[in-house]
Write a protein that binds this DNA or RNA. Structure first.
Lengths: 205, 205
DNA sequence: GTCTATATCCGGATAGAC
DNA sequence: GTCTATCCGGATATAGAC
């Protein structure tokens, strides 16, 4: 932070102007700290210190702390849905489901802090903000639920209760973030292989 | 609270003495509020108001807020382990696993607030307290892991990675608390039946 | 055992200088 | 765009009266 070499033509004209740097830096610091200690336990002064500015400067980039939290969660959920939209999903329900598992694990392993926020800090959102984020979360669940419902209809899957199975699989996948470590015993590929098989079994007799 | 009728022989001799009532009431109030709003977001004043006393009075029953949280989590985990010890588990690995699922769902549905605390407030424990609670949580995971390992050894189960399957099943079961409602679409029995089958499938080819 | 009062500190957010 | 200074409220925890 606070690199003021000013040697490049692209640098701002006035020393001390870092709107393009400080904004993202604030979001990154808030994400890291909120994920580590929880929204309520993190102060604006802490976030500012992490970025290398004073607390007052934060309010040039966010109207308040609540909006900072909401933006982080909202952007994460939006990115999640957009990324899933872009995935090549295959033709059969089986392939579709396998693609979902692979995608989910990839996306979540790459964004541990955002994932943590998205499901731990829901209760710290104002009711209006909660409704928005909850709606996006529900949309994501529905992606999986649709796959299961279609597979059940075509006979590809043997499922007792589609809604419960959806929630069970989401929970199973979400649980990975609790124990996953980059330097852990298992590679990402290995984990994906194991979970694809676990999920396949839960929808097969 | 603060019922001072003093008409029964069993009432305390001194008006305003409610040690036997206030202590549990404080814990119950703290549990409810911590679960609803999060440890960091709940003040001692709020807890006191819920009980019907002033904030200062709380310190007759707990040395500080942190200890209050720790005691709630510690007691929950201890009760969980003790209750599982007391369960009739059956003789085969299959029966053992089914008993675990049934037990887990029963215990957790009956204590939604404590369950919520136990996995949401870990990061608000001091390092020493965290280590204790984490150790108890690990003991519980090991109960399930032992069942899976034994079943794998005897050939009753077909499991790729016992550790990952343990974490996957724990997460799947823990996820119930996210959507379960007492007045919901599904009875407890029905939910247990569905999950017993989901779990059975994950350890069978 | 509880209350009132208070010490001490830290929180979010704003105003105005530079 | 950032800083310093500050307002104002609320936090935990303690001391001493009743």
């Amino acid at each position: 932070m606070n690199v003021c070499s000013d040697t490049k033509a692209s640098m701002a004209r006035k020393t001390g102007s870092h709107a393009d740097i400080t904004g993202p830096a604030i979001r990154a610091a808030a994400l890291r700290l909120f994920a580590r200690s929880g929204y309520a336990a993190v102060s604006m002064r802490q976030i500012a210190a992490e970025v290398g500015v004073r607390a007052g400067a934060l309010y040039l980039y966010t109207p308040d702390k609540q909006t900072l939290l909401f933006d982080l969660m909202h952007d994460h959920m939006t990115a999640l849905l957009a990324a899933w939209e872009a995935v090549e999903k295959g033709t059969t329900p089986e392939a579709h489901l396998q693609a979902f598992v692979t995608f989910h694990i990839d996306f979540h392993i790459d964004r541990p802090d955002a994932v943590f926020l998205a499901y731990m800090e829901l209760r710290n959102l104002t009711p209006e903000n909660f409704a928005v984020v909850e709606g996006l979360r529900r949309q994501y669940e529905n992606q999986l639920q649709s796959i299961l419902a279609l597979g059940q209809k075509t006979g590809a899957f043997e499922i007792d209760d589609v809604r419960v199975t959806t929630m069970a699989l989401i929970a199973m996948l979400a649980g990975i973030h609790v124990w996953y470590r980059d330097e852990g015993r298992l590679s990402r590929d290995r984990i994906q292989t194991i979970y694809r098989e676990l999920v396949r079994r839960t929808v097969s007799l």
